[in-house]
Design a protein around this nucleic acid. Structure first.
Length: 481
RNA sequence: GGUCCCUUCGUCUAGUGGUUAGGACGUCAGGUUUUCAUCCUGUUAACAGGAGUUCGAUUCUCCUAGGGACUACCA
């Protein structure tokens, strides 16, 4: 089974939607695996049944696929290192925890939750670091047997060294030194027999022959304990890359639900494009060798490398995401954009069988921030909004003059037949006429545009006229007159 | 409280023992045969503070400050 290939994994908990932070973890793992020519496995860490959400694994796979992150192994496709769901690997963990118990590097702890809670409170009251007091650490085998016989529930704890230094190495930060004295005898196996993340994660990474662990910065504190576990087993640890956290823009702290949208699904639903999300997220903590700012997934697959990764946390500021999104929106063909916009128009109650929709979309294309904006951006095309007559007046133009100008414009528009009713012809004819008659563009074009759109700001009069169609354009002109 | 991590324009970041400290978003201004948007051009703005090492520190070291994470039989 031994592979010479580097191996990476993405190991989420199935607790619901895909968090932006998880997306970035998955993305960096995926891109790094491409860069290293590595296998990339999906592993589901469902060791906390309290937090588990039904169907979360399937939706995780679906959304990751949607954003372009694919795996070479996982619960959905199998692989040589399965099963890929931790709840199906209980035997493996128990084998290893037994080994630790026998070698004396772990011990059974029978302390009740009440005692633990009370102990912690006392420690906090004394401004001490809350830590397990190691009461069960040196129980004799007889004592242990007795307690088990008496029906005592127990957890298995990792035995930390009592003193000395624990040196660990993070690929992004270099060596980090901890005092063994500060390390808690953490729980490896819970009293229900299920391993904690700290144990299952280390065992699986080893058994699955993971060579590079990418995980969030929040694990830095347990890093020495993880390394100690590798040492207890005599295993060579993989390389660790602790990615900096993504922070809230307002109020600070780790990107959290309470402070705004944090799920990939939220952004997709609002009409952010996958391309924009990926491009934006990858630049949070990674920088290419050049100053190129626009990156497609396939370009990233070729260019991404650990050299460009930083260690400082980044604030999640969607202003730049908006920029990327409108940029990618503008790159779409009208047909593509129309297909993307249709669901939004439909839920807004627009007639999606209207044949003019692609031309409506085209008019709105370069003023969209998200796909969801399409509804508002095209509303005036589906139905003429009510507007104040004063709006028809351009600068110093009086109401009467505006009306007169429109009246003079109308016969000129009428000269353009249905077959020539397009933006270019209209532009050419009307602009030519205004010039020949010695008028000013604004005096005619502004009232015309307002008559057609009912809006202070909108696309130009000729493109709107063309998009609306000849009949509707005249209908709106009559209303203005 | 303890441990650990981080610190360059408002934001994401590049960068070097000697640079006009670069790019992008944003801002502001101007232009693009009417408005808005797009587009173009320009503008704005940063090395957290202190000490040390050095001929010279934004860059190396230490301290302080600020921010962040962890401190569960959650991950």
């Amino acid at each position: 089974m031994a592979s010479s290939k580097p191996r990476l994994r993405f190991a989420p908990s199935p607790t619901g939607f895909l968090h932006i932070g998880s997306l970035r973890a998955a993305l960096f793992g995926y891109l790094l695996s491409k860069n290293l020519g590595a296998d990339f496995a999906l592993r589901i860490e469902d060791t906390d049944q309290k937090r588990e959400v039904a169907g979360a694994t399937d939706s995780l796979v679906t959304i990751l696929k949607k954003v372009g992150i694919e795996f070479s192994e996982g619960p959905h496709i199998g692989g040589a290192y399965g099963p890929y769901i931790q709840s199906q690997r209980q035997d493996i963990y128990h084998g290893y925890s037994d080994q630790l118990l026998q070698s004396g590097q772990a011990y059974r702890c029978f302390c009740t939750e009440d005692r633990l809670t009370a102990m912690r409170e006392e420690q906090e009251a004394r401004h001490e670091a809350p830590r397990y007091d190691k009461r069960c650490r040196d129980l004799s085998q007889e004592e242990v047997n007795e307690k088990i016989k008496a029906g005592g529930k127990c957890v298995i704890r990792q035995k930390m060294p009592l003193d000395g230094l624990v040196k660990v190495y993070d690929e992004l930060r270099g060596e980090i030194v901890f005092n063994a004295h500060d390390l808690d005898d953490q729980v490896l196996i819970k009293s229900n027999g299920i391993p904690t993340y700290q144990f299952a994660n280390v065992v699986d990474d080893h058994v699955m022959e993971i060579t590079h662990v990418t995980r969030g910065d929040e694990w830095l504190g347990s890093f020495p304990k993880n390394i100690l576990l590798y040492q207890d087993f005599g295993w060579t640890p993989p390389k660790f890359i602790h990615m900096p956290l993504i922070l809230n823009k307002v109020g600070g702290g780790k990107l959290s639900k309470r402070k705004g949208d944090v799920f990939v699904e939220d952004y997709l639903n609002k009409g952010y494009l996958v391309e924009a999300l990926i491009n934006f997220c990858v630049l949070l903590g990674w920088h290419p060798k050049s100053d190129k700012e626009v990156w497609s997934m396939s370009e990233l697959e070729n260019e991404f490398s650990i050299d460009g990764m930083g260690a400082s946390p980044a604030i999640f500021d969607t202003e730049k995401l908006d920029y990327y999104n409108s940029y990618y929106l503008r790159q779409k063909s009208v047909a593509e954009l129309t297909a993307l916009c249709l669901p939004y128009l439909e839920t807004a109650g627009c007639d999606i069988n209207d044949p003019r929709i692609p031309s409506f979309i085209a008019l709105a294309q370069d003023r969209l921030k998200t796909l969801g904006d399409i509804v508002e951006a095209t509303a005036f095309l589906f139905a003429l909004p009510e507007y104040d007559q004063e709006l028809l007046c351009w600068k110093t133009l009086t109401k009467e003059a505006a009306q007169e100008n429109l009246a003079r414009l109308k016969p000129e528009l009428e000269k353009v037949g249905a077959s020539d009713w397009n933006k270019d012809t209209l532009t050419e004819k009307i602009l030519g006429w205004i010039k020949d008659s010695g008028g000013k563009n604004g005096d005619y074009l502004w009232p015309m545009r307002v008559a057609l759109t009912g809006l202070k700001n909108s696309p130009g009069p000729f493109e709107v006229a063309a998009a609306l169609g000849r009949e509707e354009a005249f209908r709106r002109l009559e209303i203005a007159l």
